[in-house]
Design a protein around this nucleic acid. Structure first.
Length: 505
RNA sequence: CGGGAUGUAGCGCAGCCCGGUAGCGCGCUUCGUUCGGGACGAAGAGGCCGCAAGUUCGAAUCUUGUCAUCCCGACCA
């Protein structure tokens, strides 16, 4: 632990205005610095709430668009439900209230008035709401109350709705993207005639999330089922994808819940089946949030800044000209413009940094900080020799390439970088997943970080004891878990399977 | 919500102990020279010191309260 004085001195000598804290020095500080300095988000005037800045929002938009397309390809449609939920709805499903009650924002009044004492505006006491409203922390209750009217017959099923929305969970301790009081997400809510169909839906969407995380974000994930203790409030089963961050902590990147008939019973959603019998419908819900931004940042970025997978990079290629007089400027600009056009025609997102006000070196650092996958540099010498300097962000290497065929070269790099980032993250994840058989090893490894794969006796009691003693939580039971004989790493009782533990975000 | 720390110019900080109305670096503006890895010089602009009370002739400085942020815990996606 560094003293305050040392930190101050360090910041002074390294010109904090420009440079990042390194991961080794202070991982969480590195993350905080990076989010702000790469222009992704900043603190707002409202406690726990963030402003997502244009560059950060652009990344979220790519996530949104890719996911939205995948949802639609799997038969889902978008809809929108209210931000406010009547308080009484919340109490219908016992576990659900229990899970969210402690972090709800409540609307009690609907009008302000001038303070009679002259201190600005105050809440008008006469405008108290008959029934208080909860700002949604999730929408199951309002949606199931609505679905009741939509479902009469088996012919009305399934309902496959998704909504893109903001939700509010009044968190004690917040961090940009990872945990904010208000965040953006999508929540899918589906209704089915049979249990099998609902279970299949929950698993299908977990598959969609897995595909998205791995193919678009280049984040390898484990697929699993949550233990009873970690389950979503009101669900019978919670499926999850879990990723490993560079500091060895796990991050839940997406969840998909099989809700059984809990919400149907709570909100009386019944349908007549083919046998003309009244039945409760079966439900799922699934979601990913702006938390994925945190996962993305912590999976690939380094001490020089953000590293973005080409598929979701708002700018995939940046072109920087080098010149020292008007003649050279004209020469390099013409080449840059031409090259940009070719790249844009090929479908790439290209930025030509034609600012006259910054030097090339400055621009290099800036675009590296912002994680642009490929940088192309054109100076007078390049124009003469018909070359381009090509630098890649993921490896921080550069080479001279011929101008002819630069489009193919860059297109190839997009794929190569995307794959490389995934492979690198996969290797890191695998290298930090350990089979452990004794309690001492367990404690030791959890302390060092990573996923610990160990035998568990299946009881919540043991799970909680482990959490208490090591801060590690049972992250998931692998989806494809195989039964094997063993003894619980903590309790020594007979165990039938190995599960994954880790410290988590 | 408990423990610790911090709020002074856009950013990073000094000044506070020992009250007398604010300073440094970066950034910003203008001009000139520069430009193949964060340029240099000169001249400028910018802050009622988080907010609110109190003590005092006088508060960035002392007291109390409050809000916010960060770190550590509990809780959680």
């Amino acid at each position: 632990m560094q003293s305050k004085k040392q930190v101050k001195l360090y910041k002074y000598y390294t010109k904090m205005a420009k440079e990042l804290t390194t991961r080794k020095e202070n991982y969480s500080q590195w993350y905080n610095d990076l989010v702000v300095k790469a222009d992704l988000a900043e603190q707002s005037a409202v406690r726990g709430c963030m402003v997502i800045k244009p560059y950060g929002y652009a990344i979220w938009e790519f996530m949104h668009d890719a996911l939205d397309k995948m949802f639609k390809e799997t038969g889902h449609v978008n809809a929108y439900f209210p931000l406010f939920i009547p308080k009484s709805f919340f109490s219908r499903e016992a576990d659900h209230v229990e899970g969210f009650a402690k972090e709800c924002a409540v609307v009690t009044h609907h009008r302000l008035m001038n303070d009679p004492n002259g201190n600005g505006v105050v809440v008008d006491p006469s405008a108290k709401l008959e029934e208080e409203l909860i700002v949604r922390p999730t929408s199951e209750t309002i949606i199931w109350d609505t679905y009741r009217n939509w479902v009469k017959s088996y012919r009305d099923l399934p309902i496959l709705c998704n909504q893109w929305a903001n939700v509010v969970r009044w968190e004690m301790r917040t961090r940009l993207f990872l945990r904010t009081a208000e965040f953006l997400w999508q929540e899918g809510h589906t209704a089915h005639a049979t249990m099998e169909e609902a279970e299949a839906e929950a698993k299908k969407m977990l598959g969609v999330y897995t595909d998205f995380a791995e193919k678009w974000l280049a984040i390898p994930v484990y697929q699993g089922v949550k233990s009873a203790n970690e389950r979503f409030a009101g669900a019978l089963n919670t499926y999850c994808i879990e990723a490993m961050m560079q500091d060895g902590k796990a991050l839940q990147a997406g969840t998909s819940h099989f809700l059984g008939q809990n919400f149907a019973k709570a909100f009386d959603v019944k349908f007549l089946n083919k046998e003309n019998k009244l039945e409760y419908v079966w439900a799922t819900s699934w979601g990913v949030s702006t938390r994925l931004m945190g996962a993305l940042i912590m999976s690939h970025s380094d001490d020089d800044g953000l590293v973005l997978p080409p598929k979701i990079a708002p700018i995939q290629v940046v072109i920087v000209p080098i010149y020292k007089n008007d003649e050279e400027k004209a020469l390099t600009f013409a080449r840059c413009e031409d090259m940009k056009q070719q790249l844009v025609n090929a479908g790439l997102r290209v930025k030509f940094d034609d600012r006259d006000t910054q030097k090339p070196g400055f621009k290099f650092h800036e675009w590296e900080l912002k994680g642009v996958p490929v940088r192309l540099v054109v100076g007078p010498r390049d124009v003469t020799n018909n070359t381009v300097e090509v630098a890649r962000r993921d490896t921080m290497t550069k080479e001279s390439a011929s101008y002819e065929g630069i489009v193919e070269k860059v297109m190839g790099l997009m794929d190569e970088i995307q794959v490389n980032l995934y492979q690198k993250a996969l290797k890191y994840r695998n290298d930090n997943t350990y089979d452990v058989n004794t309690w001492d090893e367990f404690k030791d490894q959890i302390e060092k970080g990573g996923f610990v794969h160990a035998f568990w006796d299946g009881t919540t009691e043991t799970e909680l004891k482990i959490k208490e003693e090591t801060k590690a939580t049972l992250r998931f039971i692998p989806l494809d878990v195989k039964e094997e004989e063993g003894v619980d790493v903590y309790s020594g009782k007979p165990a039938k399977m190995r599960v994954y533990f880790a410290k988590a975000y």
